[in-house]
């Protein structure tokens, strides 16, 4: 028998509508309101052990305290599953369901599920932090919503792995993962191509990106002859013992090294740890990745004001966009605080 806790708002608890939205958090034993429909759908498989109720306004007036109260309550009762809602297209109620589910999953490790209209505001906010099933936009769809909530919720409570969102009938959580299929790649590719040739509808298995965010060009350097220029590379050039343990692929770290050290290039010498290109030419002469000799010569000739004392390195292969953007931002802020005017980046 699966033991379930259920979160609802004041309306579904029968306290009242908008005029009672300030009803305080309370815990009741057993099923209340839509919880009875959930119990019907559960049959002998499970029961609702308690119902957590909170008014829509009072939840958001002090969300932190209300979430603490939920955590405290469920920490004692230790249910196998939390069901919140369904909240359909409701704004405040949906956000409360999302917040409660996310906190309970992350802090207590109890599986959680809520039901929302796919365009409800809470979907984008909490989709990656709790399981959601799609519902209609109003309580008129309660019966169907309860069935899918219970079916998917019971799988979670029994510790079963998630399946693809469409197989589970869930709202996608925003991540992709491999799944085993029995339809061969060659067959899918040929079917897709023939559909495209016939002019029939077809569904790409990977959607193309939204256009990348265009970054407005930075203002140009006004006077090169007084500018300090820094060198940055994603080519993985580091001292041979790789003291900062920058990853050879899928990097999450960057480091900077004094250019005097690179000029000396012995004890330690510099090598590429980048796992995405053949580094023999760069290992033989690091200037081929970080053109320090050329930049120093141009500084000596007075073409630029000076070379920044450090060069910056990370590895750009298999590096995720998230980490790439973070590292770029960190490097940029360091360069600005060091008074660098412009940068030459080398990329493999």
């Amino acid at each position: 028998m699966v033991r379930i806790a259920h979160y609802i708002n004041q309306f579904f608890a029968g306290i009242g509508g908008e005029e009672k939205a300030d009803a305080p958090f309370e815990v009741r034993d057993g099923a209340v309101g839509p919880g009875r429909a959930i119990e019907m759908a559960l049959g002998a498989e499970g029961e609702i052990i308690q119902t957590l109720v909170c008014g829509d306004n009072s939840f958001h007036a002090d969300a932190e305290a209300n979430i603490e109260a939920v955590i405290a309550s469920l920490g004692r009762s230790k249910p196998d599953l939390l069901i919140a809602g369904p909240a359909f297209n409701a704004g405040r109620y949906g956000l409360a369901c999302g917040a409660v589910c996310a906190a309970v999953s992350e802090r207590l490790g109890i599986p959680t599920i809520t039901g929302l209209f796919p365009e409800a505001p809470a979907v984008d906010v909490y989709r990656s932090r709790t399981v959601m099933v799609p519902t209609g936009d109003s309580a008129a769809g309660m019966k169907g919503a309860v069935e899918v909530l219970v079916r998917t919720g019971m799988r979670l409570a029994q510790g079963e792995q998630l399946r693809p969102a469409d197989v589970d009938g869930r709202i996608p959580m925003g991540f992709r993962r491999s799944w085993v299929t029995d339809i061969p790649v060659a067959h899918r590719a040929t079917e897709m191509l023939l559909a495209k040739l016939r002019g029939d509808a077809f569904a790409s298995e990977v959607a193309l990106p939204e256009g990348a965010e265009a970054i407005p060009p930075a203002a140009a350097v006004a006077e090169l002859s007084s500018a300090t220029i820094a060198l940055v590379t994603e080519g993985g050039l580091v001292p041979e013992d790789n003291p900062d343990r920058i990853e050879s692929s899928s990097a999450t770290k960057w480091a900077r090294y004094p250019i005097s050290m690179l000029e000396r290039n012995e004890n330690p010498s510099f090598k590429s740890i980048h796992a995405g290109y053949d580094s023999q030419w760069v290992d033989a002469d690091p200037d081929r990745m970080v053109p320090l000799d050329a930049l120093k010569a141009l500084a000596a000739e007075g073409v630029i004001g000076g070379v920044h004392d450090y060069f910056y390195a990370t590895t750009g292969t298999g590096t995720t966009v998230t980490h790439g953007e973070r590292m770029g931002d960190e490097i940029a802020k360091q360069l600005i605080s060091d008074g660098v005017h412009a940068v030459i980046v080398t990329s493999t």
């Binding site: 998630l162 399946r163 969102a165 469409d166 993962r177 491999s178 061969p184 790649v185």
Partner: peptide, 10 residues
């Protein structure tokens, strides 16, 4: 296409 994996939205 020799293996059986496919990337899916979860």
């Amino acid at each position: 296409g020799a293996n059986v994996l496919v990337g899916r939205e979860f």
